[in-house]
């Protein structure tokens, strides 16, 4: 099979962070993810692409067990983080989510001040020893989220009062502030202008030095620019997974090819 050969090849380069085998997801009677197996490497940006409704968000949410919060959602199969089965009874989803951060598809700032939004994670995980420490964490996170200059004078105003794109970057800053090992980003640039987009892409590049990143994007250019690995989903199936360059220049599956060239989706 094509995708297994790819993953064998890449094992040698970076250690594997997530390894998913035969994952099935059902929402009630809807079969949203069909038998997906994939390996996500450390210190790598992996891009999920595919037409709307193909299950990218669903699969992403499996990786930090956010699907647990949906009553009708059923996840089967085997997903391991650093070799540990994350759906094991003994795994605490709360600790898992502290390690595997997430930026949601829709910006969801808390109805609190901008400062408190970013400080939320560090506070509940006790990352800051004192106020000065926390201030520093917040500023660093907001800088990485490429939004510091816009909000540095209004840190006490509600985060919900920001524009859509600003909210999106605030949510990125909020997720980065908890220092997760893996960051899952669901269309993090969907509401951003080109400048903010390139700043967020720089952030991804920087984070990649230490962390593993998984992003969902509808922009082929973005996937090509920032990711090293690309996975193409279609109707709940993982159609093709491999080196980004390979997927974009020489796709093996005709569905991938027609999606990339704009014929389906």
């Amino acid at each position: 099979m094509y995708d297994t050969s790819i993953s064998e090849k890449t094992v040698t380069q970076n250690s594997i962070k997530f390894s998913a085998r035969n994952v099935q997801v059902h929402y009630g009677d809807t079969h949203a993810i069909k038998d997906v197996s994939v390996d996500i490497e450390d210190k790598t940006v992996t891009a999920f692409i595919g037409p709307s409704g193909c299950g990218k968000s669903t699969f992403l949410r499996c990786l930090n067990r956010m699907n647990d919060t949906i009553d009708i959602c059923r996840v089967e199969g085997d997903i391991r983080l650093d070799g540990q089965d994350i759906y094991d009874k003994r795994v605490d989803p709360v600790q898992l989510r502290a390690k595997v951060g997430m930026v949601f598809q829709k910006p969801n700032p808390f109805p609190k001040s901008i400062y408190d939004n970013v400080a939320y994670g560090p506070k509940i995980h006790g990352l800051a020893r004192n106020k000065a420490d926390l201030d520093e964490i917040v500023e660093r996170a907001l800088r990485r989220g490429a939004i510091w200059d816009e909000v540095k004078d209004r840190l006490n105003e509600p985060g919900t009062g920001l524009s859509g794109g600003q909210q999106q970057r605030l949510c990125i800053a909020r997720a980065v502030a908890t220092e997760p090992e893996v960051l899952l980003m669901d269309e993090p640039c969907s509401a951003l202008d080109p400048i903010a987009t390139s700043q967020v892409e720089e952030l991804m590049d920087e984070l990649r030095k230490n962390y593993s990143l998984v992003i969902v994007t509808h922009s082929m250019q973005q996937a090509a620019r920032v990711s090293q690995k690309t996975a193409f989903f279609h109707l709940g199936n993982l159609v093709e997974f491999g080196e980004t360059g390979q997927i974009f220049t020489n796709p093996q599956d005709e569905r991938t090819e027609s999606y990339i060239t704009g014929r389906i989706g």
Binding site: T69, V94, Q95, A175
Partner: peptide
Amino acid sequence: VPRTLSDGALGLGAT
């Protein structure tokens, strides 16, 4: 209260 808010908090590792 919108679902996305509680998801946001849980996603940051809140109990």
